[in-house]
Simulated assay, not measured.
Amino acid sequence: MDILTAIKTKKVLTSSLFVIIIALAALVFFSLHENRAETIREQESLTATGTVEAKKVTASFKVPGRIENMLVDEGSRVEPGQELARLDTRELSARLSQASGAFDAAKAQARQAGDSVPLTSQQIEAAIEQARAKVAQAEVGVKNARDLYERMDNLYRGAAVSEKSYNDAKNSCELAENVLKEAQAALEQALSARLKVDLAQAQYEAAEGQSSQAGGAVQEARAYLDNTRLLSPISGFITQKNLEQGEMVNAGTPVFEISDLLHTYVKVFISEKKIGRVQLGQDVDVTVDSFPGRVYRGNVVWINNAGEFAVRKAVNEQYDHDIRSFEVKIDVPNPDFSLKTGMTAHVNIIE
């Protein structure tokens, strides 16, 4: 009886073991199948991994100098046009004062030269009119003297007048002619004086040019003085401070780095087999390891038209080729500034 019981017990154990082995085999089979299906789904889905980035702008002075004040520090939030730092302005203020003085002097000279043009013209035209009047008067004197001389000449030939009267008339005629010549010469001289008007006009234009040049020097000095104030070009946070108060700085040397953390983005690479499924404006779910379970909603804002070779090489040279990938930029709003640049972002482009 004990032998039969032992045999039955052994059969039961063998059957149970066989069932357990079959169950384990089935479990392994279905597990492998499920893992393979999950792997296929992951390979076919539009998922990728990238890094959280933000637009960064470097703030630099346009003029060299010594930093007099640093008005913000790392971590400070700034707005467009906000003053960030200031240079020592004493030397530039002195240059502006010198340029302003030279400009005022040039303007005064230009006004004086401008006033002299009509004054000179009036004086010359008055002299010309006076010379013309003298010429006209001399011409009348010459005509009268010649008429008298001709009458005296006829009378003298007829012995009707004395030689003295004849000579007096002759001398008067010659004197009148000399007076006319002098008046005509004075008129020509007065007319030639019109060149002085042209000279005065040229001097005025030269003074105006010097005034404009001096005005440009003033504007340049003011621009240099304005550029001693470093203003923020964008809204964002100071993420890097390169210099300190009291240091000398050259034009263009980076002083601050400003990051727009309100509008972060992620760049990922999508293979050429999947890039046709990605469209501009497409919604994207973004997650980061720092906040498990939290999903940030973004959208596709840029797709690079030029592909790049992927790092993964072809497995079979005969049938497979290097797979190209295309860069995709995803805009991710960050209103609470929880996303930080450099975070690893997991991207799922929603179809």
Rank of each mutant, 00 (worst) to 15 (best):
A102Q: 06
A99E: 00
A113D: 08
A102T: 03
E79K: 11
E91N: 09
A102F: 05
Q82I: 01
S116W: 10
M70G: 00
N69C: 08
D73A: 10
A126N: 11
R77T: 11
L119W: 09
A94I: 06
P118A: 00
V78S: 04
D115N: 12
Q112D: 03
E83Y: 15
L87P: 05
E91C: 01
S97N: 14
A110Q: 08
L92W: 09
R111I: 12
N69A: 14
L71I: 05
Q109P: 02
Q123H: 07
A108G: 03
D88N: 15
G114M: 04
L92C: 11
S76Q: 01
L119Q: 13
L87N: 04
A102Y: 06
T89K: 15
Q122D: 11
A106M: 06
M70P: 05
S121I: 03
R86E: 14
A105L: 08
Q123R: 14
T120D: 12
S76C: 11
A108K: 13
K107L: 14
N69M: 13
A106D: 00
I124T: 07
Q109S: 14
E91W: 13
N69D: 15
P118F: 04
A113W: 04
P80E: 02
A108D: 06
S97F: 06
D73K: 09
L71S: 10
R86H: 14
D115M: 12
D88A: 13
E91G: 01
G81R: 04
N69W: 09
V72E: 02
M70T: 02
S116P: 04
S121H: 07
D88G: 05
I124D: 02
D104C: 02
R90V: 15
Q98Y: 12
D104R: 09
D104K: 10
E125G: 06
T89V: 14
D88C: 10
Q112W: 04
G101S: 09
G81M: 06
P118C: 01
E125C: 09
E91T: 13
D115Y: 10
T89R: 14
S121Q: 14
G81Y: 05
S116I: 09
D88L: 12
D73S: 15
F103S: 12
Q82N: 12
V117W: 09
G75D: 03
A85D: 07
